[in-house]
Design a protein around this nucleic acid. Structure first.
Length: 805
RNA sequence: GGGCGCGUAGCUCAGCGGGAGAGCGCCCGCUUCACACGCGGGAGGUCGCUGGUUCGAUCCCAGCCGCGCCCACCA
């Protein structure tokens, strides 16, 4: 064993060994209690980022902890086909090669995506391995595997037959680049400097007057079908009910009242364009207005735009503004900063368009999920996310599930020449209504999240009744980022309840968002991303895992490399104290013979640390657990215990050696869920080991002979040394405390420090006596608080006496 | 505009009703036979501001200031 622990090479060796020896494998049906994590499937074209690394570190620590505690653990993952995201990546690739999606055509494009995935995709689980994630990689699943496709089709048909999937013409978000609809959740918003244009719509019977509206998109006035004002708006009370002329197209429309109009904005009058604005669409439907369109799917003016057909919106706007100016209808134009919707993938400006799309009705589907959340059958950590999960589900609008992209699950919908629709899991022979055999399949594909929603059970083989489904559904835990709650968590919960009647997992960890060191969000486009693989290369996977767990918090947290360096130091410290013990134990075998007092003391400290770790893992409080592990290793095990037994180890004391080995084993076990590699490596150097550490049993607390009672009153480890009658190699503060307690005469020679300590104790005594002398405190404070104060007072007095001043 | 959260040592963060903490950084001293990725010592904080509750507040409540994230159809 070298003096410096080098994780490079060691970690990869153990990762291979664990996997080759089948120690990651999950098998259903052992009858043991199960711990199942259906880990979020990364995008098939994805690369490991900090969020993944954090999720893995959390989940794997819990999985390893449960595995050692004899649970049947199943840590499963795979890949998500990630519709638009993948299509976008491959399209970029095609453009680089001088071609395009349109040029190669749909069929060929899908082939290219598959080829591309085989070459460039599916690499991220290799990176999961590099972090030490103890997943059963044999069970990797892909959301476009044949079996998974069957699950998706089953879900669609199931919902369709219940009447919850339907087709409707509505206004949707249209990406002119991808030529598809997008859900609200697939958009990003960006502030832009724009102009707000005030335009007068003349009254039909009083052309010199009229209603002035404000719009950010003058080009859409060609599709105006009304002007709306707030109900009872006094400024416009004379206008309501009258007719005005829409400029340029010279269409006569009516002035209506609607409560959706914000009287604060602009002039309080709104031009109503149901074909090109979501709010106007709602107003239009409420007032049964026609739905005209003048902008096409390509984002340009369409054939209904008359002489402007074919122009870009900017060109059309220019022509319209010139026209308005000539006729004195352009009231004013002012600078206007507002946010616009963009496609999150290609950043194209979203075009609200009316389009025939497929929808999933949420009203009934979400009810059991809401009940499950309200009953805490699914528990969010931290609990503050619970209410958000409920609110977001309560307010979930009907879900637009169809997309017009090419990469994804094609809808199981077939149409005959007469327009009848047949919905079947697999291609039907004939139209269900007219028997026609000339069927064409819908070209739409499903929203990626429609298939993701099935992940926790589709990967277990649903809709078949497999042993895995039987044993591992419902699962235990899901870990994810905050913004995924609506996209994924809610949908897994309602689909699991709908299809299997049970929640997919009992706990959801919404993990900390790790921000870049400068406080900005980590993002590739900002250049603030951080490659976890680089951290692993430099500090090791163990240190990276430790650091990320240490950074978890109730709040978003800035990345700090110090946390990871702390992990590296811990690994090195552990390595070296192991060297100390292993090179001085001769033929000893690990065995607890805690005869000496410092041995009972360390057993007690290890018990305490384990109790903390058990409790904190169970509560998903990772940062304090890592802290406890750090301090029990550095402070208790290395600084005091190892120093105390050193002389006995050197002298060949067999009890000390056997016990030291046993205590080291125990420490390694406690650290393994967080630092799996270095602990397994040291474990392999221990004599008489029968199993790999990864599957070794989690230690039973020793509960050594009333250790708690024996040590509870002892505040300094120095007292342990005194009672043990050993004279370890001590320096500085340790030496001083030791001397003060063991040999007050000697400590007196070191006057200054003892005086300072005595002064501190006198201060404490005065404070405690003051509190206890306060009748209101004694009367009002809880009994145990008062009692604790009395004990402290006694202790301070004892310590002061011990100083002998 | 709504929701959640945060402002504690130079930095990153714990603590959340009775002693102001950790890691890193900084200063001083140590080539002590496990570890210089180490050991020992030390400096450094009116715990954002103002009120309130309490015998007592970094911790609870209210307001204010500053910051972050999520959500939202202000044309």
């Amino acid at each position: 064993m070298e003096p410096l622990y080098k994780p490079q090479g060691v970690e990869e060796r153990w990762q291979r060994t664990w996997e080759d020896e089948g120690l990651y494998n999950a098998e259903p049906g052992s009858g043991r209690e199960t711990f199942v994590v259906a880990h979020p499937p990364p995008n098939v074209t994805g690369a490991l980022h900090t969020g993944h690394a954090l999720q893995i570190s959390l989940a794997d620590a819990l999985v390893r902890w449960h595995r050692m505690r004899n649970f049947e653990t199943a840590f499963l993952t795979g890949y998500d086909h990630a519709g638009i995201s993948t299509q976008n990546a491959v399209e970029k690739h095609l453009v680089e090669q001088g071609t395009s999606r349109e040029e190669v055509g749909r069929e060929r494009f899908v082939e290219i995506v598959w080829d591309w995935l085989h070459e460039y995709g599916r690499t991220i689980t290799a990176q999961f391995r590099r972090l030490g994630a103890s997943m059963d990689y044999r069970r990797e699943r892909f959301t476009m595997d044949d079996a998974y496709i069957r699950a998706v089709m089953r879900f669609f048909v199931h919902l369709y037959r219940k009447g919850w999937i339907y087709r409707a013409n509505r206004i949707i978000n249209w990406c002119p680049h991808h030529q598809t609809s997008l859900s609200d959740l697939e958009l990003v918003h960006e502030e832009v400097d724009d102009a707000l244009t005030y335009i007068r719509y003349p009254f039909v019977d009083e052309p010199e007057s009229g209603v002035t509206i404000a719009t950010a998109r003058p080009a859409t006035i060609l599709a105006d079908v009304a002007v709306a004002v707030g109900p009872g708006d006094e400024r416009w009370s004379d206008a309501v009910g009258r007719e005005v002329v829409v400029p340029f197209v010279e269409r006569i429309v009516r002035v209506i009242e609607d409560e959706r109009v914000d009287p604060e904005f602009g002039t309080g009058a709104l031009k109503v364009t149901p074909g090109h604005d979501p709010l106007d669409f709602e107003i239009g439907r409420a007032h049964e207005l026609p739905e005209l369109t003048v902008i096409g799917p390509d984002g340009r003016m369409n054939e209904d735009a008359g002489e402007l057909a074919g122009l870009t919106q900017a060109e059309a706007e220019e022509r319209i503004l010139a026209w308005l100016k000539e006729r004195g209808l352009l009231v004013k134009r002012e600078a206007y900063r507002h946010s616009i919707a963009l496609c999150e993938r290609c950043k194209s400006r979203i075009e609200p368009l009316i389009s025939l799309q497929w929808w999933c009705a949420m009203d009934e589907l979400k009810q059991p999920a809401l009940a499950a959340l309200r009953d805490r059958r699914v528990t969010y950590h931290p609990p503050s996310q619970h209410r958000y999960a409920i609110d977001s589900l309560e307010n979930a609008p009907d879900w637009n599930i169809s997309r017009q992209i090419w990469w994804g699950h094609q809808l199981p919908v077939w149409q005959c020449p007469d327009g009848h629709l047949t919905v079947e899991e697999t291609e039907p022979g004939a139209c269900a209504e007219c028997g026609s055999t000339e069927l064409t399949r819908s070209e739409d594909v499903l929203d990626t999240w429609f298939s993701s929603a099935l992940w926790p059970f589709a990967i277990l083989g649903w809709p078949d009744e497999t042993p895995e489904l039987e044993a591992w559904y419902p699962g235990s835990l899901n870990t994810t980022a905050r913004e995924i709650i609506r996209l994924w968590e809610n949908r897994m919960i309602f689909s699991g309840l709908e299809l299997l009647g049970e929640i997919p997992f009992s706990d959801v960890i919404i993990h900390t968002t790790v921000l870049a060191a400068d406080g900005r969000r980590m993002s590739k486009s900002l250049g603030t991303g951080l490659d976890p693989l680089e951290l692993i290369d430099r500090h090791g996977a163990d240190a990276t895992r430790y650091g990320l767990l240490k950074l978890t918090s109730s709040q978003d947290v800035r990345f700090s490399e110090g946390a990871i360096e702390e992990g590296r130091k811990l690994a090195n410290k552990l390595w070296n104290v192991s060297r100390l013990i292993l090179t001085n134990v001769g033929d000893a075998r690990p065995e607890q013979r805690p005869s000496a007092l410092e041995e009972r003391w360390i057993a007690w400290r290890l018990d305490q640390a384990q109790a903390q770790v058990d409790e904190q893992f169970a509560a998903f409080d990772f940062a304090p657990a890592t802290s406890a592990l750090y301090h029990v290793t550095f402070d208790d095990f290395c600084d005091w215990y190892a120093e105390a037994i050193k002389p006995r180890l050197y002298d060949g004391d067999e009890d000390a050696q056997a016990t030291a080995l046993a205590n080291l084993e125990r420490l390694l076990k406690l650290l393994h869920p967080v630092l799996p590699h270095v602990t397994e490596e040291i474990w392999s150097h221990l004599p008489a080991r029968e199993t790999r550490l990864i599957v070794a049993p989690w230690p039973e607390p020793l509960g050594v002979a009333d250790a708690g009672a024996e040590f509870e009153p002892i505040q300094t480890a120095a007292e342990v040394f005194r009672r043990a009658g050993v004279r370890p190699q001590l320096q500085g503060e340790q030496q001083r405390i030791f001397d003060a307690v063991v040999r007050p005469d000697r400590a007196k020679a070191d006057g200054g420090n003892v005086e300072a300590e005595a002064a501190r104790l006198r201060g404490e005594i005065a404070r405690a006596e003051g509190m206890l002398g306060n009748e209101r405190f004694v009367a009002n404070a809880p009994g145990d608080v008062v009692e604790a104060e009395r004990e402290k007072l006694e202790r301070y007095k004892r310590e002061l006496d011990a100083l002998g001043v």
